[in-house]
């Protein structure tokens, strides 16, 4: 944050930094008066708290990894096991709680990787234009011709099943959206007079692009990162569900639903609770993203 106000260069060109600070304050106000986004934020705070505290509050932390308790198999939800137990007697509640941290880690990894690749490619393409733009965007288009999930399944299967490869596979198909978005932003900003002025002062291309253009292009990217976070978790869960993502006994929600699928609906709790956990995670990121869109990208909503 401090970066916004303490400028390290005494150059008095208005590249929107003071405005940005003012806009931020107004945005925070608008965000706080929006019930839905505050609800989303509250659920997310709760989810992060659960993720951090899970190892301490989960009643049977061992069940997330190696625990087995055949005597208690297929116990219905009750006082002892709030979400019931699965076919080898593991406590679903503990597994869902400990899976929260994993889901957050998966979402973060995918989004950070996809954003880094996408923003770099999109920004470079837009800034340099010409054949660089043509080449990079045609490359991006290729990835956009196939639905992401399809390519993610293929890539992950080839890399080998598992949650780490699933994250890589998903990130590799997720960046084109960010590339397109960044490109359109940078193209509209790079023609502004302040960019010309900074160039006149002798700033290098990379400095102009990353320090002066991108910060002004960041709002819609942040909105996209937020809404995409939920869907990235959802996609990883989908891969876990069909069997190419996280493998048992990893307490990944999608893989847990897959394990519970054969026992549905008689032992309904095995698959139901991880599904609700995924829903809550995706829903809260969607609420937050929807609210942020109002704040940061007001044109999209009047």
């Amino acid at each position: 944050m401090a970066d916004f106000i303490t400028d390290d260069k005494p150059v008095s060109i208005d590249d929107g930094r003071s405005h940005r600070w003012e806009n931020l304050r107004r945005g925070v106000y608008r965000f706080r008066s929006n019930t839905m986004s505050m609800l989303g934020l509250s659920i997310l705070v709760f989810i992060f708290a659960v993720a951090i505290l899970a190892p301490y509050i989960a009643p049977y932390p061992k069940d997330a990894t190696t625990g087995v308790n055949p005597v208690a198999r297929f116990t219905e939800p009750g006082a002892e096991h709030p979400f019931g137990t699965d076919r080898i007697g593991r406590d679903i509640f503990s597994r869902v709680l400990i899976g929260t941290g994993l889901a957050l880690k998966v979402g973060t990894t995918i989004i950070v990787l996809a954003t880094s690749i996408g923003v770099t490619i999109g920004a470079v393409a837009a800034y340099f234009g010409g054949w660089v733009d043509e080449l990079l965007m045609r490359f991006t288009d290729i990835f956009l011709t196939v639905p992401g999930l399809v390519l993610a399944i293929a890539v992950t299967a080839a890399l080998g099943r598992g949650i780490d490869n699933a994250m890589i596979g998903i990130a590799l198909v997720w960046w084109p959206g960010f590339a397109r978005l960044t490109r359109s932003q940078v193209i509209s900003i790079k023609e502004e007079p302040y960019v010309e002025a900074i160039r006149g002062l002798g700033a290098g291309n990379l400095r102009i692009l990353f320090r002066h253009i991108l910060p002004n292009a960041i709002s819609p990217i942040i909105v996209k990162m937020t809404t995409d976070f939920g869907f990235a978790v959802l996609t990883a869960a989908a891969l876990g569900f069909i069997g190419v993502g996280a493998q048992p006994p990893t307490p990944e929600w999608g893989a847990m639903i897959n394990e519970g699928r054969d026992y549905f609906p008689d032992e309904w709790w095995i698959a139901t609770f991880p599904g609700l956990a995924i829903w809550l995670m995706v829903f809260s990121w969607n609420l937050l993203g929807d609210g942020l869109r109002d704040v940061l990208d007001p044109r999209s909503r009047r």
Binding site: G230, A238, G254, I257, A271, I278, W279, V282, F283
Partner: peptide, 8 residues
């Protein structure tokens, strides 16, 4: 839209 399609 937040429901996992496979679960639903």
């Amino acid at each position: 839209v937040s429901f996992p399609a496979f679960w639903l």
